[in-house]
């Protein structure tokens, strides 16, 4: 990769932007975590790079917006992918444009529709993202102008990233937990907009193809949620 510059230092990876085969490319390097046992560190890193690569490929082939995968280098703990130009991390977008603002109903609906549809698609393909937060979703910058006239294409504006915790052969429980993780992360990160998750969930159900399975996920989700509420917390 040429002309690479560090753009973000995440929790477990450094992300570089550069040129690879004449394309703008993002390189994500999962650095060694010294706090954990070296064998455990090596195994987790390999698992996650593999998971990320597989999930990206699978999602892409299902027509879900993700960066295209370019190259995997397990030896150097790196993954190379398409750099998404002109995008904003969804968390920042919400903080800047929604939290504490008036007249945001249509924006919220747009986000709910986009996320709900994308996640329904992922789950229909049995892809569990594993870390659904607004930090792991990019929103294309030009989407705001097109948002009012083109409601149906909302989901194409949301690019899913960070598939390191993704899993494939998923059970109903996995899908329910994926939603539960998202719900809690939305509540915590965006407590000023408590209605966000219900918007997402509404469109999720609307766009989940297999209605019977969707019912089952819903039932499981309620169980998972109740477990969290009812957990005895002794000590």
């Amino acid at each position: 990769m040429k002309d690479s510059e560090l753009i973000v230092q995440g929790a477990e990876a450094r992300l570089y932007k550069g040129i690879y085969l004449e394309r703008t490319c993002l390189m994500k390097e999962r650095f060694v975590k010294n706090y954990r046992h070296p064998e455990l560190d090596a195994r987790l890193t390999k698992d996650r790079i593999r998971a990320e690569a597989r999930a990206i490929i699978r999602a892409k082939s299902a027509g879900i917006a993700t960066p295209a995968l370019y190259l995997v280098d397990l030896e150097r703990r790196r993954i190379y992918m398409e750099y998404i130009e002109n995008s904003t991390v969804l968390k920042n977008f919400i903080d800047e444009n929604i939290s504490g603002k008036m007249d945001v109903v249509h924006l919220l609906d747009f986000i709910g529709r986009g996320l709900g549809t994308v996640i329904a698609k992922l789950h229909s393909m049995h892809i569990i993202h594993g870390d659904l937060t607004t930090s792991n979703i990019l929103l294309k910058n030009n989407s705001i102008e097109s948002l009012c006239n083109n409601q149906s294409g909302a989901e194409a504006q949301f690019v899913m990233i960070d598939f390191g915790l993704a899993r494939m052969d998923s059970t109903l429980e996995d899908k329910a937990v994926d939603l539960y993780v998202l719900e809690r992360s939305l509540l915590n990160a965006h407590c000023e907009v408590p209605e966000l998750f219900s918007r997402v969930f509404h469109y999720y159900q609307q766009h989940y193809q297999n209605k019977k399975q969707c019912e089952e996920i819903l039932a499981k989700y309620k169980q998972v949620q109740a477990r969290g509420r009812k957990r005895l917390m002794v000590g």
Partner: peptide, 18 residues
């Protein structure tokens, strides 16, 4: 080693997030 690594990892993720 395993359970503590899990705890540190999620703590770090939360710190990065907030």
């Amino acid at each position: 080693e395993t359970v503590f690594a899990m705890l540190i990892e999620v703590t770090e993720r939360a710190m990065a997030h907030v």
